[in-house]
Design a protein around this nucleic acid. Structure first.
Length: 757
RNA sequence: GCCCCUGUAGCCCAAUGGCAGAGGCAUGCGACUUAAAAUCGCACAAGUGUGGGUUCGACCCCCACCGGGGGCACCA
């Protein structure tokens, strides 16, 4: 509807469609049928394309692309190398999210509540050497540039992205460690509570904890604890009512603000990969620390006076603001002042500094699967990592024939010996290709750029075309992509901007989250046979009726249940509209100006309202407005000015054109019946005459104390004074005001008059 | 536990702080018909989740609570 509307308005609209076709569905299907994912994918695309054509979506089929075409993923590899050369793509060892069922690693964003986003199995951790993209370098810009999107993206999506990036501000503070030359740095958002720190906790699974325990009498106990921590799944870890556990490391740290000696503990409630993996614990003012202190019988010291109950007694850490107490130089200050002052003092002594942290982690992109873009790196024993030279791109996937695609934790590509063994591009010695493939979100992070240049084969995208078309004026997608796809795309856009390829920093100017169609409470899916049912409905009622019914069922961002969708009712409405075209007896091209004024006003008002509704995404309201216009026109034909009146033709044409957005086939037929040549899609949006939007008389409400006493017809241009006079002259009002003491008269011209007595 | 959205006739949904109803579904009645379908016409119904507050006036703004949906959830 949006695309069709702007075409009618005379804009040059690009409305492309394509297939994000790499990934597990194809690969798993191929494994099941023992065939090549390639064949399965292209067969399915053909089927789907044919069925999608039925929906009358005005897609530009000349710009179609498939991300699994070498022609497309060649540019994935090119982009990867661009980032690699800038240090934005790198490899590191780390404990990664591992799905035992899919037998591949997952990005943080793909783990939902400890479960694999795709298969809902529990995710475990595994130490692996993997490729990452340095999205954390862009954390601040991803956050701050949201100002550009404010008002044009759903607030919900912006909030979700903000939470996901999770920026926090605070300070890093150095604690000296007894018997260790290096101090330990902790990150805190509350340096104002430093004097309340009564112990330190390091992440049990960090290298730091192991080092502090090593050679220590508690080492055995620590190892036992570490083993139990490792055995816990993410789901266990995420349980909120989980009791705190940990082990004393028999080591001590010195608090830099008061030289106090505090014990160091290891626990799994501190995360190894956030901040520095070590915290100062302030049990009085942090619930987690308090829970731990109570469990381990550690001291609790209040340093903020909030008026709340004593945490040691209540078991509830105080969260309110208040004055700092018992805290040396910052005693008596308010929170913000205390934070500023103590941070400055620490910085002066080189014992700390202001710092920021993010919840966002670097994006893990390697996947141990076949059906994806090969990572264009060659591993040479002598030269190490070597980028595949640009002129050798694409690194094409080998044939799947003879490869065992079954998930087993290693890339199937590693077994394709003809493919994997190559000469090092630098020294020509025998070397191996990187056998992992890219996360498919890499593919979808820049496809909008490719749509501008599908016919260009020497560049990923043509700069001029990109400048002409982009950024995308209107993006439409499900809220399921609120973080993953939309965050990654924003990241890519910024990287490409910095590399000098783009002159904008945000890819999607406006975003509409459209809802899903539910059947019996769950999403439409092939496995439930719902698509078959939809296909039947299409055959019975026609595409137009289905389109109208879906649009009319509710606001576009809401999920709608098929039970609330009424294709039969929509068909009835379309017939009603269509018959009007047949009833018109005036000739095409007749001058509307001589037509019936009241119907003309309805027509112009409707056109105006319909345009506003479409532009503000209220498509359901838009359909309702067309229905109103149809009703009014019907009435005019049957019992008003009659079918010969030019106003009836004007109304019928307005109906046809506005209907062309949602029911294009019906509209086209109406257009021809009305004596016009195809195509109505290019007929142009009728010009609304502002003079016809004005009513000649408006009903004004007359109130006494806010209660309606009577109504009055007045001219829309009535003045306040005249309106008040008219109101006072009204019989019922006059009667109501007899003997009353009028305290106030509110006159809103031309809407109401209210006498307060 | 924290944050966000939401609550209007039997149902889906509308209403720049100013007459609660635009539209549809369902239902009922009537016209047309031998009859039915289709079509056309008419009718029907809630005082806006609950309790407060602001205002001349609140579905709309503010506070609390209840119900529904979603997000985050040891991130120091």
């Amino acid at each position: 509807m949006i695309a069709r509307y702007w075409v009618q308005k005379g804009f040059n609209v690009m409305h492309p469609i394509g297939w994000d076709a790499f990934g597990l569905p194809a690969e798993n299907a191929a494994i099941k049928r023992n065939s090549d994912p390639r064949e399965w994918t292209y067969e399915n695309i053909a089927v789907q394309k044919a069925s999608m054509r039925r929906y009358a979506c005005s897609f530009d089929w000349d710009r179609t692309l498939h991300t699994c075409d070498p022609e497309y993923y060649k540019w994935n590899q090119w982009l990867f190398l661009q980032m690699y050369n800038k240090g934005l793509a790198y490899r590191k060892d780390s404990a990664v999210n591992w799905c035992p069922d899919c037998q591949t690693v997952l990005a943080n964003e793909q783990v939902v509540a400890g479960l694999c986003e795709r298969c809902d199995n529990a995710v475990t951790k595994k130490k692996l050497n993997q490729w990452y993209l340095k999205i954390t370098d862009y954390a601040d810009r991803l956050l701050d540039d949201m100002d550009q999107l404010e008002g044009n993206w759903p607030e919900k999506v912006l909030t979700m992205q903000r939470n996901w990036i999770g920026r926090s501000t605070g300070a890093e503070v150095e604690f000296k460690i007894e018997g260790r030359s290096q101090p330990i740095t902790v990150y805190t958002t509350r340096p104002d509570t430093l004097f309340g720190a009564t112990f330190m906790v390091v992440a049990a699974d960090s290298a730091l904890a192991a080092e502090l325990a090593s050679g220590n009498e508690v080492e055995a106990e620590f190892k036992k604890y570490l083993d139990s921590v490792k055995a816990d799944s993410d789901i266990d870890r995420l349980a909120t009512d989980r009791p705190k556990s940990g082990v004393f490391l028999n080591r001590f740290a010195i608090n830099p603000v008061n030289d106090e000696r505090i014990p160091i503990w290891a626990s799994d409630y501190v995360l190894a990969d956030y901040g520095t993996g070590a915290i100062m614990a302030v049990p009085a003012h942090d619930q987690r620390d308090l829970d731990f202190a109570k469990a381990m019988k550690l001291p609790i010291r209040v340093v903020i006076e909030t008026g709340e109950a004593d945490p040691a007694q209540s078991g509830i850490a105080t969260s309110g603001d208040g004055k700092v107490i018992n805290s040396g130089s910052i005693t008596g200050l308010a929170k913000d002042e205390a934070i500023t002052k103590i941070t400055q003092e620490l910085a002066g002594k080189k014992l700390g500094k202001a710092a920021r942290n993010y919840r966002l982690r670097d994006w893990l992109i390697s996947r141990q699967r076949f059906w994806g873009t090969p990572i264009p790196i060659i591993h040479c024993e002598k030269c190490g990592e070597v980028a595949v030279p640009e002129n050798q791109l694409p690194v094409e996937l080998p044939s799947a024939a003879g490869l065992d695609l079954k998930p087993k934790g290693l890339s199937p590509l590693g077994a394709a010996s003809d493919w994997v063994n190559v000469a090092c591009p630098k020294c020509n010695a025998p070397a191996k290709r990187d056998a992992d493939t890219m996360d498919t979100f890499f593919d979808s992070s820049w496809y909008y750029l490719r749509y501008t240049s599908v016919d260009k084969h020497d560049v990923a995208f043509d700069k001029k075309a990109v400048e002409t078309w982009l950024p995308v004026d209107q993006y439409v997608g499900g809220v399921t992509h609120a973080i993953l796809h939309l965050l990654y795309s924003r990241f890519f856009t910024k990287v490409l901007h910095d590399l000098g390829h783009l002159n904008f920093t945000e890819p999607f100017t406006r975003l509409l989250n459209q809802g899903m169609v539910l059947m019996d409470g769950s999403a439409m899916s092939k496995s439930r046979g719902n698509l078959v049912r939809l296909s039947d409905e299409l055959a019975t009622h026609g595409v137009d009726a289905i389109r109208v019914a879906l649009v009319f069922a509710g606001p576009p961002e809401d999920d709608i249940d098929w039970a609330d969708v009424s294709p039969a009712g929509s068909l009835k409405f379309l017939n009603r509209a269509w018959r009007i075209a047949g009833d018109v007896t005036s000739k095409a091209g007749v001058d509307f100006k001589s037509g019936d004024l009241s119907l003309r006003k309805v027509t112009h008002k409707s056109l105006n309202d319909i345009a506003i509704a479409v532009e503000s995404f209220r498509f359901n309201v838009c359909v309702a407005r067309i229905m109103e216009l149809v009703n009014a026109t019907r009435k005019a034909i049957d019992s008003g000015c009659g079918p010969t009146d030019p106003a009836v033709r004007e109304a019928a044409e307005a109906i046809a054109i506005s209907l062309s957005l949602v029911a294009p086939y019906t509209a086209e037929d109406m257009w021809e019946k009305l004596g016009h040549k195809p195509a109505i899609a290019n007929a142009g949006w009728p010009t609304v005459d502002p003079a016809l939007l004005e009513d000649d008389a408006i009903e004004v409400v007359l109130q006494v104390n806010g209660k309606i006493i009577d109504r009055l017809e007045v001219s829309p241009s009535v003045t306040k004074d005249d309106l008040e006079k008219a109101a006072r002259a009204n019989e019922k009002i006059a009667a109501a005001l007899v003997g009353a003491d009028i305290k106030k008269v509110i006159v809103v011209a031309p809407k109401l008059v209210n006498f307060v007595i």
